[in-house]
Amino acid sequence: MTGAKHPHARRHTIAVLVDNEPGVLARVIGLFSGRGYNIESLTVAEVAARENLSRITIVTSGTAQIIEQIKAQLSRLVPVHKVVDLTTDGPAVERELALVKVASIGDKRVEALRIAGIFRAHTVDATNESFVFEIVGRSDKIDAFVNLMEPLGLVDVSRTGVVAIARGTQPL
């Protein structure tokens, strides 16, 4: 029972600051797969080149006990500097970026462009028979956009996964 399907399971966004060294992502992912925790999304990139730090944002779900375990397990990895649960530690902003390719002609093409406008998606590539839209927002907004594009000729989606940051003046 990993907790992901438990009735009290909740979605959490966890930020992890790590040394940017070989194998550190494998340690984090290995911890999740080895202990049967769920990963809904994961993003990683260097955030402070001088200090050689990367930031990993993980969206996971589980009961309160499982989430505590995940945080404790992450914290004991040697190259981990900091683990912050952005879901419980005050308000945070979450964003995801998606590139959505829609191939259609006629009314469907017009409708796709119109809906993209409503969602404030940018058109970053166009041919006579297709568009690539760039959309930024919370994951549920992107889900909604992708669902609407489905009958309008959706052919491909690429999503970044969630990045998140706490509101207010404080750093991680």
């Binding site: 397990q73 914290s75 004991r76």
Partner: peptide, 11 residues
Amino acid sequence: IDPSSINKNIM
């Protein structure tokens, strides 16, 4: 000494 041992199996 290991925080991950706490509340792992028994609350």
